[in-house]
């Protein structure tokens, strides 16, 4: 019995990430290659159509990221309407039991991969993972490349979103006990740099800073789970406290949502879709909103 428990413990330690579904939150090229013949596998290649046509993981469907994080008026990266998202997913071959792998260009695009993966989870899909290191890692591993255009027909219809993964401005302003995490760069956090569409420089008062690009190594691969966990712990984040992640327009914040929720297994994490673009401005997005005064040049 002791031996059995030891094996279990060893297996738990070796598992790179928590398996909440039929796929790990990040998979490597070898895993993907070994699963290419799985009829449930759907690979979403998020690169530009021209890059996809030039070569892609065999069987991958081409999906434009901007059909999954869409512009709505002046808002930059919003969740699509359910019928539009259903069309995109069905055209890519997605079914309710699909095992989906999101492929971006490389590790520098991790937040765009997580934005897609977060949206799929938000849309109710259970089995979603991301190719660690993106297509660049697939090529670097010497895996096969195809130029065949894949046309699959799925039947997944988005019926409702999982609102527990989502925060909007009203929710953030009321969530006084939540720990707020800023996923942008230090320059943005401290107010030294500001995107033109964000009305105020700096950060939400009290927010912790965890830049999205800390998740990956300089080579673009996701850091080990223990290192990611340590980053959060040493910052003072409590896994049991409600956590809301924000950024400029709702892309970068999904990177830490993905790590907290899917890799580390935190159960109360929300991504703020509108982020600073909405938080710092009035309802018309034209003027800074006095209800939220960002702070600059200081921690938290």
């Amino acid at each position: 019995m002791k031996k059995f428990l030891a094996v279990l413990l060893l297996a738990a330690c070796l598992a790179p990430f928590a398996f909440a579904a039929d796929i790990a939150p990040f998979v490597d090229a070898s895993w993907l290659e070994a699963n290419l013949s799985n009829p449930r596998l759907v690979i979403l290649d998020m690169r530009a159509p021209g890059d996809y046509k030039a070569g892609h993981v065999p069987g991958a469907s081409s999906v434009l990221g901007s059909t999954i994080y869409v512009a709505k008026g002046e808002l930059k990266n919003e969740v699509p309407e359910a019928d539009d998202l259903s069309d995109v997913l069905q055209a890519a071959g997605v079914k309710a039991d699909s095992i989906i792998v999101v492929v971006e260009a490389d590790g520098s695009r991790i937040a765009w991969a997580t934005r897609v993966a977060w949206t799929l989870k938000y849309a109710g899909l259970a089995n979603v993972g991301i190719l660690d290191g993106g297509y660049k890692a697939w090529l670097a591993a010497g895996k096969p490349v195809s130029t065949d255009i894949t046309l699959k027909k799925g039947d997944y219809t988005v019926k409702k979103y999982v609102y527990a993964y989502f925060a909007d401005k009203a929710y953030v302003l009321k969530a006084s006990k939540a720990q707020i995490v800023d996923a942008r760069s230090y320059d943005s956090y401290f107010g030294l740099a500001r995107q033109a569409f964000v009305a105020q420089a700096g950060h939400f008062p009290g927010a912790f800073s965890l830049p999205y690009n800390w998740i990956t190594t300089p080579e673009g691969m996701v850091r080990p789970k223990a290192e990611l966990e340590a980053m959060a712990a040493k910052l003072g984040l409590n896994p049991k406290t409600e956590t809301i992640v924000y950024c400029d327009s709702g892309v970068l914040c999904t990177s830490w949502w993905w790590v907290f929720s899917e890799v580390l297994g935190w159960t109360n994490v929300r991504s703020f879709d509108g982020s600073s673009q909405v938080l710092t401005a009035d309802a018309t997005l034209k003027a800074a909103d006095p209800a939220v005064k960002y702070v600059t040049h200081t921690w938290r």
Binding site: S66, A71, K76
Partner: peptide, 8 residues
């Protein structure tokens, strides 16, 4: 392509 800021 959607790079102008709208939808592709």
């Amino acid at each position: 392509t959607g790079e102008y800021g709208g939808n592709p």
